[in-house]
Design a protein around this nucleic acid. Sequence first.
DNA 1: AAACTAGTCAACCGCTAGTCA
DNA 2: GTGACTAGCGGTTGACTAGTT
Length: 325
Amino acid sequence: MVRTPCCKAELGLKKGAWTPEEDQILVSYVNRHGEGGWRTLPEKAGLKRCGKSCRLRWANYLRPGIKRGEFTEEEERSIISLHALHGNKWAAIARGLPGRTDNEIKNYWNTHIKKRLIKKGVDPVTHKSLISGTSKTENPQEILDKQNIIQTTITSDDDLGNGKVKNEDKNSRLSSAWFLNRVANRFGKQINQSVLSEIIGSGGPRTTITSVTVDSESDKSTSSSFSPSSNLLSKMTVNGNGTLSPSMFSDSSVNDSLMYCDSVTNIGFSGFLNDQHFMMLEESCAENTEFMTELTRFLQGDVNDEVEVTPEYQDDFEEIDNYFA
DNA sequence: AAACTAGTCAACCGCTAGTCA
DNA sequence: GTGACTAGCGGTTGACTAGTT
């Protein structure tokens, strides 16, 4: 099949930077006629540009709602998390950052984030440590120590997060990955893959949880279908649109990938959840809720057996504990 | 002040998938 | 099924700028 060229060179189409006048023509034309029909747009609008160029200019610069300027810490963390999930699928990543274009994110990744990750010993492709020699014979604590070194290095530097995210920051305990690992440590061994699939949702991230399935091995007395009225998982959906939010957690980013990807120590979800599912699960957390805050606090306290649950949620947590006990 | 270098980012290029006649 | 076309995607380029020598 012979493709007709997108832009006919003989028409003397202009290339290079757009002038304010050209922008004005394009904006007013799109405002009048809407988006689409890019191939015929230049001629109709009176622009000596390739239709493709017009579409790109509109999509990346002129379209309403485009956010300009520096990326925020939160945006940067989102990019890293989403890149770990999608790879170089810039359009997919851009969907997770309203107002940012794929082109802008791609540029920011290549010129800023990528270099920082490499500099800090993190592979920007796999999001795993570039430090080699992590052997199976290594003491898990040593591995964790090594990871802590990496995490501290990354987050205490003036790089990622402009140095505002510190490893020693108390909020780091509220990391989504940390949270999920806590849940996994506490309940995970009793939840099988199908539970996690339900949480994640077959349709991808940000899926409403309606019911969960419990490993029949861990609960032979009941059916495999579990639709609790006030259990942990259903509570996650109570407020908002039925999703969980990483935004409530302060530092889901590189730290998280280092945490979850460790297959040697077998901590948290890593023992039975692959990277992609973990990231999807993390991305599923799209809504901050009071309950989630309380649950996080509960799990934090649980580390030191200092659990003191707000009476309002006492029954919920007891139910969770009793169920998985 | 001039030349050079490195970083940034808007724009371009080539390709693919989807749609329609 | 085929070809033409459109829209969108990811990689690359090159103009511009700031910093350094």
